[in-house]
Amino acid sequence: MEPASQPTGRAAILSTLRERIVAYAASRYERESAEDLAQEVLVVIHEKYPQVERMEDLVPLGFQILRFKLAAARRKAFRHGDHLASDADLLLSPDPDPEAEAERAQRMERLVAALARLGDRCRDLFRLKLQGKGFAEIQALLGAESLATVYTWDHRCRKHLLDQMGGRWA
């Protein structure tokens, strides 16, 4: 599987990553705060993770920081006055946030209920994925004709599960 044309170099990757984050934040949160949010993410990557160079590491790192930033921004909207920067360090904090823990517990309950409503094949597929089996192994275990078939099954099951969750994982 050949990778798509990708920006090479850390600066180029972060620049592209910033554009995607701004667009994403604008669609999911607030357009006015999207620039600031993307800037916050890049600042954290730049300051905390200067050693990360590869795209395969920078992109998921950017997703992780972005998620915490968005959660902090939403909490801030309730608190009125807290600065985003004060919550940005939460993702690096070893102490769990009680509110975040509660949200996770609720998300877990929804996920369990949604999985119970899936068909047998989707449940088997999800179970094998949780066991760490790759798509090639799943193909052999489920007797799929090709790897593309497994991709298609997984894509449909994921969509079905997302629908059962109400269209969003969070």
Binding site: M1, E2, P3, A4, S5, Q6, P7, R20, M55, E56
Partner: peptide, 8 residues
């Protein structure tokens, strides 16, 4: 790699 490159 393919997924992240496509995402970017």
């Amino acid at each position: 790699s393919a997924l992240f490159a496509a995402a970017l």
